[in-house]
Design a binder for these strands. Sequence first.
RNA 1: GGCGCCGUAGCCAAGUGGUAAGGCAGAGGUCUGCAAAACCUCUAUUCGUCGGUUCGAUUCCGACCGGCGCCUCCA
Length: 474
Amino acid sequence: MTLALYNTLTRRVEPFQPLAPPRVTLYTCGPTVWNYAHLGNFRTFLFEDLLRRYLEASGYDVFHIMNLTDVDDRTIKAARAAGTTLRRHTEPFVRAFFEDRDYLRLRPAHVHPRATESVPAMIVLVRRLLDRGVAYQGDDGSVYFAIDRFPGYGRLSRLDRREIKVGARVASDEYAKEDPRDFALWKKAGPDDDAVGAAWDAPFGRGRPGWHLECSAMSLYEIGTRFGVETLDIHAGGVDLIFPHHEDEIAQSEAATGRPFARWWLHGEFLNVRGTKMSKRFGNFLAARDLREQGVDAAAVRLLFWQTHYRKPLDFTDEALAAAGEGVRRLGEFHARLAGAAGKGSRGEGRLAELAAEFEAAFRAALDDDLNAPQACAALFQLAHAGNRALDAGAGGAAAAVAALDRAMAVLDVLPTPRTADPDLARWIEAQVAARERARKSKDFKEADRIRGALLARGVELEDTPTGTKWRVV
RNA sequence: GGCGCCGUAGCCAAGUGGUAAGGCAGAGGUCUGCAAAACCUCUAUUCGUCGGUUCGAUUCCGACCGGCGCCUCCA
């Protein structure tokens, strides 16, 4: 089996084949840092993390680029409203994004180009398009892309050019375009742009980049300077980016380079709330940091997302999150048990080693099939179940099973975040546990239960095992 | 109107032309002083509805019902 991925370009699951294996160039559309990214945004980033990690686990040498959109309509508007500069407004949100990313255990991209630091590359791209005659300067001074001069326009989104309805939101620059459906590459600077420091000088006038231009310019720059190519292996984002964002990126990039822009286009579905997409606009959003502040283990969020295929909408509820949290706990118990057995010399052959081999085959088969993470999770829980049975029976091979589980965790990363108590508290807990042990030994179960109840009230759970009482902070 | 997604147990959710993974929740049991954890047993004759193709459809086709997204700067 080899990895096959659904390609929006062909609307089919196709065997994945990078341009120059083992290298894989991966570009994922990053956050617009006008505000905190919400969980819906992170569903897409999590799906991309799964993709990235599985490619790496499959032996590919992934170069992951994730841009930061720090100049666009929303960032400018927000900076203006806050009475500050673009840079000052976006900086805290960039930091917040990285914090959230770390909280959710996303593997950091190799580079995070910022739009405001990539203006030279954008100017180069616009010039190329002007030189090739597919872009033009409108009467308003902005530069537009002429979609009629790019025959492939609409291929990704499958929108017939004639069918693209002119939206209700008629832009003020409408009159300046040759065709209302043309899109801006470079927007002439306005008073607000200059006020917040969102304007740059260019041969074709002072202005700022259009949103679509940013991604094309940054991705082509990164892979061009590093690898000397103009085609990405994979470009990913949310389904809402298919049109117009990605469609326009393709038009700009391919019109400029004459080469395919990306071989695979992957799109993740939305995170919904009561059936409707989570969105700042609808006010039904939850920021990643909200969960962190509630003490939600990121592993639960990850497992919740993995249990629905990335191309299916997922309704976010507290119940589903709690259910995923239980699953995480179960996996954590199993891992600890397995590691304990491995530490006691359950090595070499044995039932557990067999189970591990079966598991790994099933796990890979699932993820090879267009990242079927729900199926991979099913395999994981089957391993936990059969593995617990085997452990009960004293089977060998625990070391091999731990190794297999750890390899799977390098991809899914859903083991519980270890909770630690500070040393003073730990000492106190140990003392309580010891006192309870004495009570139990002398059959004073009333006292033993009182101590257990008191500990539980402080968030400490006890578990009596044949080798002594274990405790953990919950 | 165009382009798409979805409808599977109480909840979440995989899946295949041959008779329904997994998680959570629930019930009973084993173990335990009692718990917890783990394990065992049980919990959809059925996959939105109606037709069609087929020896056979949840899976293919059609219609319909219901929910949702995108259609110029939303992940």
